[in-house]
């Protein structure tokens, strides 16, 4: 079975549903029935991770021995897109999925820019760590799936300001994923939807506590990050920008949590 989610759904709505949904669709491309029975495929995923890491290792070895012309870094993306594990981790844990893409581009850009082998190895280690972290997430999801865990859905209760920040953080990971996959339009759409549907909901309370922080994040959402994407910045530039935004959002989250405590009672 192959499914591709229509563009509008690849953004926030999909990310919001990732955590507990028994997923039947994939944000960035094809999906297999295997994700509906993760437990039965854990062995296969494990082999794929080992095989992928070995291929990356071989590529980095070649680069270290023979230089940049001896390797085709586009293969890194091809190998990653070929494995079933790709879908398994994407639908279960977006933050790690983002780290894997960042790791792939870390290695790719280090080689493409002719960096020292030691620097490429550093990126390779980060990529391997992300892959194994992804494997851990898939194993946990397989257990939950086998135990019959399901989503409570969007009607389950109050979304606090702090929860909204968590969702924004996840969406920003999704932005980096889409951008790494050359889906600039979708990445920009996620930014816009996240601003309108999530950030706008918290900024009212936040602005009373730290107006400068809100102003800063407003610029990030409406100017900084979309412009980087529009101007075709490198994946690592976008990733770094998102990292800086996430740091500010964590600060915002603490302020919102404090604000919740200080809020007066209704009755």
């Amino acid at each position: 079975m192959t499914t591709r989610i229509p563009a509008p759904l690849t953004s926030m709505a999909l990310v919001l549903l990732f955590a507990a949904m028994p997923v039947t669709a994939l944000a960035s491309g094809e999906i297999g029935d295997h994700v509906e029975d993760l437990k039965a495929h854990l062995g296969e995923y494990d082999s794929e991770v080992k095989d992928f890491n070995a291929k990356v290792d071989g590529l980095v070895d070649s680069y270290a021995e023979k230089g940049g012309e001896s390797v085709n870094t586009a293969k890194l993306i091809e190998w990653w897109e070929d494995v079933k594990f790709h879908a398994a981790v994407e639908v279960n844990y977006v933050p790690v999925y983002a780290s894997i893409w960042q790791g792939i581009y870390g290695v790719k850009e280090a080689i493409d820019e002719g960096k020292a082998a030691a620097e490429v190895r550093k990126q390779q280690r980060a990529l391997e760590q992300a892959m194994w972290k992804g494997m851990g997430a898939v194993m946990l999801a397989a257990k939950n799936q086998a135990d019959g865990g399901t989503s409570e859905g969007d009607d389950s209760g109050k979304v606090s300001g702090s929860d909204a920040v968590d969702r924004i953080l996840t969406n920003l990971d999704e932005v980096t994923i889409e951008y790494a996959e050359n889906e600039s339009e979708e990445a920009t759409e996620i930014i816009h939807n996240t601003y309108l549907n999530l950030f706008e909901g918290i900024e009212g309370a936040l602005i009373e506590q730290d107006a400068e922080l809100v102003e800063d994040l407003e610029k990030d959402f409406n100017v900084g990050l979309p412009k980087l994407i529009e101007n075709g910045a490198s994946v690592s530039e976008v990733t770094d920008y998102v990292k800086a935004m996430k740091k500010k959002l964590k600060r915002a989250q603490k302020l919102l949590e404090k604000g919740e405590q200080d809020k007066k009672d209704v009755f």
Binding site: H192, E203, V214, E215, N222
Partner: peptide, 14 residues
């Protein structure tokens, strides 16, 4: 153009 109306108000104050 701004994405939201708090952005509008902040734009005015800036």
């Amino acid at each position: 153009q701004y994405a939201g109306e708090l952005g509008v108000v902040m734009g005015v104050s800036r």
